[in-house]
Nucleic acid binder design. Structure first.
Lengths: 341, 341
DNA sequence: TTGAAAGCGCTAACAG
DNA sequence: CTGTTAGCGCTTTCAA
């Protein structure tokens, strides 16, 4: 099944390879007649330029790399969707890699992307990434790079984020406004900016109210998982009989909390109000439905690709590129795990 | 930031490019001394072979394409995860594309994969794909291809599937065994094999029991969505006051049904038993938790890559490759939307 | 044990 | 308007 190449077309038409190439590229210095003959034959033979050869010449792969912590998370799946959609409409394919929240893997994946000569990289840092040498390596090679969601503030590159602190502040404040006096936070023990910021938002909201900040109300979910939420819920109830509000770092945690609380026959929201984070679909099918913060995954993916694309273009044309930090709006979604105002 | 090439290494060491290449590839006819010098320098300069050049020579991209109907579906996300994981451990990267259940897009995506010269393609057919000319084109070019989940029976290639009919039969039979007499099915109006087979399984189970098959109990969900389930549930209750069992084509539909039924204060499972299909995480957080059929997405992804990989290897070494059809086991997951036996 | 040279398929500068 | 040629970086004969 030998592939059809320019040579074959040229030979068949008795013209040179260069002429065939130019005809296909629509160069102005080819007669309409030849152009047509080439185009027709190419069409007929279903000619597809060999991308390896094109890439070798142009040093462009028209492929970008996307590193995701966990594909099976609703939010990240939306991000992938967004990236792929926008990439495709700009002629780019996307290699998707998963870091599984491991620093080692993340580094490895980045290496693979370098090996594949991708034109740019989109990455959301793993929860366990502290050393960013591997990211800097990419940058030092001049490969366009955009961080999304879990960013590293000090890295000088474009970023797409939400305002985690503000969103958390609003969520917690809502709890306060609906009358909660003893509000717990379930956070993570790791340091991606999102985790820290959501905690800071929670704390700021408490500080801005007339509730006293109580350190013992802050719990740590090691894996940010459903099970974590499930277990911590029980612990919380032991520690604080009069708990009346919970702001969880993620929807999965919140869902775990909800499940356990229901088993313990705690009334939600009457006795305890609960707010999650991300607006995973599953929060809208629990009973009660869980209030949460909408995190626009699809848009984030699109925007991230957009910035990357601009940077790739700029690099290609030797223009300088202004880093951008885009902050996407979030929205508090009020459902039935919180009391009405 | 000029990339480090073999030439640079060769020049720096005062040897030829060919020698440098061979040293790196571990050819036996290079002296240990030279070999070491080359390896050391390559290491030091962080040399990465230019994949474009390698690909151009070898006609291999070490990239495969994966076409998914909907990334944001739990099941498909698991498939992606499986494919990516196995691909990576075999040195392959994965370009992920989404068909959005549109035939047109599917065709377009396949074209993009051809353009990118992927070494193989993994595809789950869109619900609207009837004409498989585009698939045949891939095959005719000799590009290894494996179908997973939504397959086309008549296409001669490797496939990874579950036994939808049997799984549906078991689910429905379980409903019957727990005493249901009037069991509805919510299916799709399209013809991927999965939809048909699940319906056939349902029907076979009814036929094998002493319940009379009643066509009016079979409903069609146009989009296989939550909303479809939600709306159809209401219709069903109007049509059949004495309905006592529902087997839904997918978990999303089942969840929609559950939501509506709860709103209508129908007791589940006392009055109506409900079974979904796929075992999405969300079915385990509803109240009651929904019984369903586990569909091993991750394993399916792994296995699909496996078969593809074997085929790629076979092709590469000019060996002939036996198509395989792998059937993965499913499992009925009994939760609280069905009565105990 | 090493190196020269051809060639994968394409593009673009240049010459005719 | 068309063709010749060089070269992208690598691998692999084949000759030295």
């Amino acid at each position: 099944m030998p592939n059809v190449t320019l040579k074959k077309i040229a030979d068949e038409l008795g013209i040179s390879i260069a002429t065939a190439s130019k005809a296909l590229k629509g160069y102005p210095d080819i007669s309409d007649a030849t152009k047509k003959r080439v185009l027709d034959l190419a069409e007929k033979l279903n000619y597809r330029p060999n991308s390896f050869a094109q890439s070798l010449r142009s040093s462009e792969s028209q492929i970008i790399g996307l590193i995701i912590p966990e594909i099976t998370h609703d939010f990240f799946a939306k991000v992938i969707h967004g990236v792929i959609t926008c990439a495709k409409s700009n002629g780019y394919a996307v290699i998707v890699l998963q870091s599984g929240d491991s620093y080692e893997k993340e580094k490895e994946q980045l290496g693979m992307l370098l090996d594949k000569n991708v034109d740019g990289v989109l990455i959301s840092l793993s929860n366990n990434t502290k050393d960013i040498g591997h990211i800097k390596e990419i940058k030092s090679k001049g490969i366009p790079l955009v961080l999304y969601d879990r960013i590293y503030k000090l890295l000088d590159c474009s970023k797409v984020v939400i305002n985690d602190k503000k969103a958390a502040y609003n969520a917690t404040t809502h709890l306060i406004h609906t009358g909660c006096k003893k509000i717990a936070h379930i956070g993570g023990n790791l340091d991606p900016q999102t985790t820290i910021d959501r905690f800071l938002g929670y704390k700021a909201a408490i500080d801005d109210s007339d509730i006293e900040y109580d350190k013992s109300l802050v719990y740590i979910a090691k894996n940010l998982s459903f099970d974590d939420g499930y277990q911590i819920a029980e612990q919380m109830m032991k520690d604080h009989k009069d708990l009346d509000g919970i702001f969880a770092l993620t929807d999965t945690i919140a869902t775990g909390v909800l499940m356990k609380l229901k088993e313990m026959e705690v009334q939600i929201p009457e006795q305890i109000s609960l707010i999650g984070f991300s607006n995973w679909f599953l929060t809208s099918v629990t009973t009660p439905k869980i209030s949460t913060v909408n995190q626009p995954g699809f848009e984030m993916g699109c925007k991230a690709f957009d910035l990357l694309f601009k940077e790739i273009q700029a690099k290609k044309h030797g223009m300088l590129f202004e880093k951008e930090i885009v902050e996407l709006p979030t929205e508090l979604i009020l459902r039935n795990s919180t009391k009405p105002l």
